[in-house]
Amino acid sequence: MILIKNGKVYTMEAEKIINGDILIDNGKIVKVGKDLSADNAEVIDATGKYVYPGFVEAHCHLGLDESSIRTEGQDYNETSDPVMPHMRGKDGINPMDETVVNARNAGITTVCAGPGSANVLGGTFVIYKTQGNCIDEMIVKDDVAMKCAFGENPKMFYQSGKLKTRMNIAGLLRETLFKTKEYLAKKEAANGDVTKMPAFDMKLEAMIPVIKKEIPLKAHAHRADDILTSIRIAKEFDLDMTLDHCTEGHLIVDEVKNSGFDAIVGPSLTHKSKFELKEKSFTTPAVLQQAGMHIAITTDSPVVPQEYLPLCVSLAVKSGLDAYEGIKAITINAAEIIGVADRVGSIKEGKDADVVIANGDILDVATEVEYTIINGEVVYKK
């Protein structure tokens, strides 16, 4: 049992900020309020400190690209085929890599991680906590989204012959979706009769949850035309989707907002390393949020090291994003967008006890995290 006393608590709930206490027991938040007490509790004095929910990264590749190593530890892009929906991100994660430790020590407690953007369809993302040695024991929710990618990355990886144009990217995605609909219809028509079932196809099996809207597409799209193509296809097949990166979203804000899809914006703390990033700007989160969109902010780690997620928010705030909305973008908004807000993203009774205690405003680059608590356990103490 842990009792955090007298902190400036960012609950990310209706009562946004309180000066008070948090009682933690059995891995959960038991009580949030003032003048709390509990026998036999470990007391953490948070007087003068800032207390946040554990930070949530809505799109990354943490653990799939290991630190200080090349091909031996790069497991986020499988380039043998542009259509690989049957891959699962969790099969490539090394939770003992130092990048995961660095994230945890910086207060990032939950991440949504999975395949990179080499493929038109790249496989499923998994949501996991950043504490543990076995990924299976760290998982919050598995197979939460299907990665798809538009634009320069698939073109670059397959330019030798399999894929050369944006038309073919869209064509391969449509073909797979049509085949999945047909495959699913045949399975349903067979009504359990194995003699009438279509021949097993692992790739199409993996796409069934997308067609049934059980999981969204996680659409890598930077340039405005690629964002619009992703929206066009999602609407055509009546799919759920998130707009990941959405780099030129500020140029087509009405179309992006009217799509009804949420945006996970970034990474903005990078060089403009390719043509489709030429309009990259830290103003994009503010423009989309002020238009009424639900947004999260991403590092896209390892593109930006995971521990700099709050810094990315700070720079977005410097460029016009409201500070509280910025914190929402890496807490409750991120949790809602990836579908785990029932467990993480805010400090509320009954939720997982993922808490960060810092010696100042987390948006101040000089601020240091002093405690990271995951599932009620202190996993980092400065």
Rank of each mutant, 00 (worst) to 15 (best):
E188I: 08
K196P: 04
D193S: 06
I264E: 09
V304E: 05
T229W: 00
D238C: 04
R223N: 09
V313Q: 11
K257H: 08
M197D: 01
K274R: 14
M202I: 15
M241K: 04
V287G: 06
D262T: 11
G266S: 11
F282P: 10
A199P: 05
E279F: 13
T299K: 10
V287D: 05
T195H: 01
A189K: 15
T195K: 13
E279H: 14
A190S: 14
P216Q: 09
L309T: 06
M241T: 12
E307N: 09
S314Y: 03
P302T: 05
D244H: 02
D226V: 05
A221R: 05
I227A: 04
P310F: 09
A286W: 00
R223M: 07
K186I: 02
N258H: 06
I295G: 01
L288D: 03
K278P: 00
K257A: 08
E236T: 07
K212D: 12
T284W: 03
L311I: 11
Q290A: 11
T242A: 07
E276D: 15
I215S: 11
K235M: 12
T298C: 12
R223F: 00
N258L: 05
G292K: 07
E276Y: 00
H222L: 10
T247L: 05
D300K: 08
P198Q: 08
K186N: 11
P267N: 04
D240V: 03
L309Q: 10
K218A: 08
A224G: 03
M197Q: 13
T298M: 14
V256M: 11
I295Y: 02
A189P: 03
E255D: 15
K274H: 03
K196N: 11
S259N: 09
P285A: 10
I264W: 05
V194L: 10
M293H: 08
D300T: 04
R223S: 13
C312E: 12
K186E: 14
E255H: 08
